[in-house]
Design a protein around this nucleic acid. Structure first.
Length: 922
DNA sequence: AGGCTGGAACCACCC
DNA sequence: CCGGGTGGTTCCAGC
C-alpha cells in the first residue's frame, strides 16, 4: 500500500532511505540481525570543541539537514555508526516485508536497515483495523523517540558496537524478532511508511470489539515484568518469533525494556555512544523496536483480526566518505531530521513538510521521515515565527474509549474551542498544523501512549482535518491558511483513550497507564524556508485531565496569583482551578533529594472565599526565613488522602529581595532558578505535575513544573540545598532546552517529555526542561541519585542536547544505555542526551555538556546569570554514558508513586567520563 | 437515528 | 480471606 505520497516523492517502495546520518525512524527498527553486531558506533572527540557552533540552528529544526554553520567536521564530535548486516537473510526478510527495496549491494555496506514497526504500531483502533486494538500493534509510543535517531556518521567498526556484547542482547533477540515479524507481515511493504492515507483512515472503524477481557487476563497489573510478553501468547497469532525477547537469555527481561546492556560491555564503549542516533540504534536493537512487531504485540484477545502491519524499513545506504566523515556539525548529528538525505530522491524538498494545498479531498497523509520525531522538543518560536495557543483547552476533557461513542471535541475553557495561531508568517502558502496528544507529566513532552487524538467530524465542526499516523501516534493535520491569519480553531479534535492493558502489554512500553490520565494537545507546524530548511515549531497546551473520575474528584490548580513571596510568608495567594472543597487543604512542601519531605506546612485557607473553583490561601512562612537565595518549593491542594492536585511551584525569596528574583550564581543554586524561571512558571498557570509514575522512581523530586528547568534534577538539588558533590568530583552536564527553543513555548511550562522510555527510570532531571527556552542549568548531585554524581549546567552556547539528557538518559534505566548521546539539533530527541558532551576538561572529571537554548522569544526573561558559565565552552569532548541497571517495574504502582512517599528506588549508575587521554569511572 | 454527554455500574487490584 | 478504597472500563439513558 503505497500511499500516493510516496510516489509523489519518489519514495522507493520499500521506503528505504539512505541516511547518511541519522534517521529518525531508524532507531526503533534499527535492529541488527540477531545478536550480531550490527552497528558500530564510534565517537570521535573533536579536537576542539566549539560549542557555539550552530547556534543558529538551535532555534529550529532544520529538516534539510544542513547545518547552519558549516562546521568542519572535525570539530564536532563525530560518531560513527556502521551497521553491517551479518545476516543477509534477515535483511531480505525485512526488505520483503518492507516491500522493497534497496539493492542488495547497498545493504552490505553499511547500511542500517530499519524497519519501522510503527506503521502498524498505531494504537488507535480507528486507524487500524478495528479489531486490532491499538495496543495490539506493536508499536510503542516510544518509537518516536527513537526515530530521532541517528545522527551520526556510520562507520564500520564492529568493535565499537555495543551489540557485540551479548548483553546488549535484548535487542538481539528483538531484532530477529522484528524482522520476523516483518516477514510475517502480510503487508509487504507498508511501504514503509507510516503514513496513512485518508483512505485508510476512512476505513470503517471496526466496531470496537470490546472485549472486556484484558490481554492480561483481566488483571491489571502494572508491571512490565515478564508477564507481559507472554501475554498473549496466542494472540500474537501470526507473529511467531524464534526468539522471544523474554525468552532469550541475552535479552533483557522486559522489565527493563529499555536497557539491557551489561555494564561491562556497555561501559567499555560507553563513551562512544553519546549520540542520540546511537542510542536510538541501540534501543532499536534492544527491545523495543524489535520486539514490537513481534513480541510486543499484545495479543489482545479482543483483537478481531490481524491487520496488515505496515512497516517501514529504512535502510541506510552506504554513503560517500564525505558524508560519513561528518559533514554535519554536531548539532546536525543531533537531529536526525536534519540529516540531509543524500539520496536523490530525498532532496531537501522531499524532507520538507508537504505543503498541502489543502484540498483535503485529497488525502495527504504523508509525513516526511525527516521531520522531527514527535518526542523531540521543539521551540514554539523561531525567528519571526511564533506558534501560539491563543485559546487554551479546558483542563478537563473526558476521553472516550473505543467502546464508546465520541465524546466530542476538546473545548476551551470559556466555551468554544482551542485556537492556535502562527504569528510572523507572511507567506501566502498555507501550512499544515499538526496536532497530537502528548504527555503532561514531568517528563519531557512526547506522544502519550494511552491517548490518541481523535478526529471529530460533523456539522458542528468547522475546521477541516485529516488524520495521519506517525509512528504509532495519530496526528491530526489542520490547514493553517493565510487568509485565516494562520489561525485555526481546533474544533475537530477529540481524545481517544486506549485501554491501559493494551498499551502496557506492548513490548517496550514502559509507561504505566494507571493514573496517567493527563495529556496535552501538542501542535506543530513546519515552515519551509527558501534555503531548503524547514523550521519546525511546537506548542503544547495546558494539561488536560482526561479521566472522568479524576476530573470529578481531583482538585486541579489552573492558576495561582502568586509565584513567589518572601520567606516570611503571609501573603495571600488565590488559586483558581477545579474541585476545591470546603475541606480542601493546601500543603507547602519541600522535598529532599531522595523525595522525602524535608518540610511540609499547611497553608491557611480562607474558607469563606473557597469555592469549587477558587481557593484563597495564605502562604505559610518558610521554615528558614533567612534564606540567602530564592528557594523553590511546591504546594498542592488536597481533598483527602489520595486526592491531591499536581504540585505547583512556589518560590520563597530572601526577605529582602521581595520581588526580584536573583539568580543564583552558584552552581548549586541553579536548580532553584530553574524552577523559578521555568518558562511555564512565569505564567502561573502551569502546574507542575508531579510525576505520576516516574516520580515514584525517582529519588529526586521530579517536578513537572520544572518544566522550565532543564532538568528536574535541578529541583531536587535545590531542595537538598546542598551540593552533594564537591565540585571537583562532580560531573557537570549542561543541558539546554532543545536548542534554543524558545520555549516550546507555548506550552513552555509543561513541556515535559515523558517518554515511556524512561518510565521507570529515574529521572534525574525528572523534569527536563520543557523545550521551553532558556533552561537554567540543572545540577544533579550525587545525592540525588544514589549512584550518580553529576551536575549539569547549561551553557548558553553550546551543543544542543536533548533535554532529556540529564534526566532520562542518565537515569532512566532501560534506555539509559541507549540514550547515550546525541547531539541533536534544535530539538533533540530526548533520548540522546549525552550526545555531545563537551568535556569540561577538568581532570577532575568534570564533564560538561551543554546545550544552548536560546531564549525564547517572549520567554520569561532570565538573566544571563541563569546560565552559569555561558562562556564556558567545553573543551575536549568527553563522552559520558551512564548506564542504569534495569529495574523491575513490576511492583510499581502509580498510586504509590503519587503518594507522598515515593518509593525510592536505588539506581545504579555508572558514569564514565571519557577523555582521549583517560577514562574515568565515576 | 446518531452523536454527545453525564452518571454510574462493574470489576480488578491494592491496602 | 474480607471489606473498603481506587480507578479503569463499560453501559445506560437523556438531550
Amino acid at each position: 500500500m503505497k500511499s500516493a505520497e510516496e510516489d509523489a516523492y519518489s519514495y522507493p517502495p520499500s521506503a528505504s532511505l539512505s541516511l547518511p546520518v541519522s534517521n529518525p525512524y531508524l532507531s526503533p527498527q534499527y535492529h541488527s540481525p540477531q545478536g550480531g553486531p550490527s552497528l558500530s558506533v564510534s565517537i570521535t572527540p573533536p579536537s576542539s570543541y566549539a560549542p557555539q557552533e550552530d547556534k543558529g540552528s538551535l532555534g529550529f529544526y532544520t529538516s534539510a539537514g544542513m547545518r547552519p554553520n558549516s562546521t568542519p567536521t572535525l570539530e564536532s564530535p563525530r560518531i560513527e555508526i556502521t551497521p553491517y548486516s551479518q545476516f543477509p537473510d534477515e535483511e531480505e526478510e525485512e526488505e520483503g516485508s518492507s516491500g522493497g527495496g534497496t539493492p542488495a549491494g547497498n545493504r552490505i555496506m553499511s547500511v542500517a536497515t530499519l524497519t519501522l514497526p510503527n506503521a502498524d504500531g498505531y494504537r488507535d483502533p480507528s486507524c487500524l483495523s478495528p479489531a486490532s486494538s491499538v495496543s495490539s500493534r506493536s508499536c510503542h509510543s516510544e518509537a518516536s523517540s527513537y526515530e530521532s535517531g541517528l545522527s551520526c556518521t556510520y562507520d564500520t567498526s564492529p568493535q565499537n558496537s555495543p551489540w557485540q556484547s551479548p548483553c546488549v542482547s535484548p535487542k538481539g533477540g528483538s531484532s530477529s524478532v522484528h524482522s520476523s515479524a516483518l516477514a510475517a507481515s502480510p503487508q509487504p511493504s507498508p511501504s514503509g511508511s507510516p503514513r496513512l492515507t485518508d483512505d485508510s483512515w476512512a476505513a470503517p472503524r471496526p466496531t470496537s470489539s470490546p472485549q472486556p477481557s484484558s490481554p492480561c487476563g483481566g488483571k491489571r497489573k502494572y508491571s512490565f515484568g515478564g508477564g507481559g510478553g507472554g501475554g498473549g501468547g496466542g494472540s500474537v497469532g501470526a507473529y511467531k518469533f524464534p526468539y522471544s525477547p523474554s525468552q532469550s537469555p541475552n535479552l533483557s527481561p522486559h522489565t527493563s525494556p529499555r536497557l539491557s546492556m551489561a555494564e561491562d560491555t556497555w561501559l567499555g564503549n560507553t563513551n562512544q555512544y553519546t549520540n542520540s542516533a546511537i542510542v536510538a540504534a541501540i534501543n532499536a536493537l534492544s527491545t523495543d523496536g524489535a520486539g514490537d512487531l513481534g513480541d510486543n504485540l499484545p495479543m489482545k484477545s479482543r483483537r478481531t483480526g490481524l491487520e496488515p502491519c505496515p512497516s517501514l524499513s529504512m535502510k541506510i545506504e552506504p554513503r560517500g566518505e564525505e558524508l560519513m566523515s561528518g559533514e554535519y556539525s554536531t548539532s546536525d548529528y543531533g537531529s536526525p531530521s536534519h540529516m540531509p538525505f543524500k539520496k536523490e530522491g530525498y532532496s531537501g524538498s522531499f524532507l520538507d513538510v508537504p505543503q498541502h494545498s489543502y484540498s483535503w479531498s485529497k488525502p495527504k497523509t504523508y509525513i516526511s521521515p525527516s521531520l522531527p520525531a514527535l518526542d523531540w522538543q521543539l521551540p514554539s518560536s523561531s525567528g519571526p515565527y511564533s506558534l501560539q495557543i491563543e485559546v487554551q483547552p479546558k483542563s478537563h476533557h473526558r476521553a472516550h474509549y473505543e467502546t464508546e461513542g465520541s465524546r466530542g471535541a476538546v473545548k476551551a475553557l470559556a466555551g468554544g474551542h482551542p485556537v492556535v495561531q502562527l504569528h510572523g508568517y507572511m507567506e501566502s502558502e498555507p501550512l499544515t498544523l499538526q496536532l497530537f496528544i502528548g504527555t503532561a507529566d514531568d517528563r519531557m513532552l512526547r506522544p502519550h501512549a494511552f491517548y490518541q487524538v481523535h478526529r471529530i467530524t460533523g456539522k458542528t465542526v468547522s475546521t477541516p482535518s485529516h488524520e495521519v499516523l506517525q509512528n504509532s501516534t495519530k496526528l491530526l493535520e489542520i490547514p493553517l491558511l493565510p487568509e485565516s491569519n494562520m489561525k485555526a480553531i481546533i474544533d475537530c479534535a477529540g481524545i481517544l483513550k486506549l485501554r491501559n492493558s493494551d498499551i502496557e502489554l506492548r513490548k517496550g512500553e514502559t509507561d504505566i497507564g494507571r493514573k496517567n490520565t493527563r495529556v496535552r494537545m501538542v501542535f506543530r507546524v513546519h515552515i519551509s524556508q527558501a534555503n531548503g530548511r524547514t523550521i519546525s515549531l511546537q506548542v503544547a497546551s495546558n494539561p488536560i485531565e482526561c479521566s472522568q473520575r479524576s476530573a470529578q474528584e481531583l482538585p486541579l490548580v489552573d492558576k495561582q496569583s502568586l509565584e513567589s513571596c518572601s520567606a516570611t510568608g503571609g501573603e495571600k495567594m488565590l488559586l483558581t482551578g477545579h474541585n476545591f472543597q470546603a475541606d480542601s487543604k493546601v500543603m507547602f512542601v519541600e522535598n529532599a533529594q531522595d523525595g522525602h519531605h524535608i518540610w511540609e506546612m499547611e497553608a491557611k485557607i480562607e474558607k469563606e472565599a473557597t469555592k469549587s473553583t477558587t481557593l484563597l490561601v495564605e502562604v505559610p512562612p518558610y521554615r528558614n526565613q533567612n534564606i540567602a537565595s530564592p528557594l523553590s518549593v511546591s504546594f498542592y491542594v488536597c481533598n483527602g488522602k489520595r486526592r491531591r492536585s499536581q504540585c505547583q511551584r512556589f518560590t520563597y525569596l530572601p526577605p529582602k529581595v521581595p520581588t526580584i528574583k536573583t539568580e543564583p550564581h552558584d552552581d548549586y543554586e541553579l536548580p532553584q532558578l530553574c524552577t523559578q524561571h521555568a518558562p511555564g512558571f512565569s505564567l502561573h498557570s502551569k502546574p507542575y505535575y508531579p510525576p505520576q509514575v516516574l516520580s515514584a522512581m525517582m529519588p529526586v523530586d521530579p517536578r513537572p513544573g520544572t518544566a522550565g528547568s532543564s532538568f528536574g534534577a535541578s529541583c531536587p538539588q535545590r531542595l537538598g540545598g546542598k551540593p552533594s558533590l564537591p565540585p571537583s568530583s562532580s560531573l557537570s552536564l549542561s543541558l539546554s532546552s532543545p536548542g534554543s527553543a524558545p520555549s516550546p513555548g507555548g506550552s513552555p511550562k509543561l513541556h515535559d517529555l515523558s517518554p515511556t522510555h524512561y518510565p521507570k527510570g529515574l529521572l534525574l532531571g525528572s523534569a527536563l526542561p520543557p523545550p521551553a527556552g532558556p533552561l537554567p542549568s540543572v545540577t544533579v548531585s550525587a545525592a540525588q541519585v544514589p549512584a550518580i554524581q553529576a551536575t549539569a549546567t547549561c551553557y548558553q552556547q553550546s551543543v544542543l542536547f536533548h533535554p532529556r539528557v540529564a534526566s532520562t538518559p542518565l537515569l532512566s534505566a532501560p534506555n539509559a544505555a541507549a540514550t547515550a548521546g546525541t547531539t541533536t539539533v534544535g530539538t533533540p530527541p530526548p533520548e540522546r542526551p549525552f550526545g555531545s558532551l563537551s568535556p569540561s576538561s577538568t581532570p577532575g572529571h568534570e564533564v560538561a555538556a551543554s546545550v544552548s537554548p536560546q531564549p525564547p522569544k517572549g520567554s520569561p526573561r532570565r538573566s544571563p546569570s541563569a546560565f552559569l558559565p555561558q562562556q564556558a565552552s567545553p573543551s575536549p569532548t568527553l563522552a559520558i554514558s551512564i548506564k542504569q541497571e534495569p529495574q523491575e517495574l513490576d511492583q510499581m504502582y502509580l498510586d504509590d508513586v503519587n503518594l507522598d512517599q515515593e518509593p525510592y528506588i536505588p539506581i545504579h549508575v555508572k558514569i564514565y567520563v571519557h577523555h582521549p587521554l583517560r577514562s574515568l569511572a565515576l
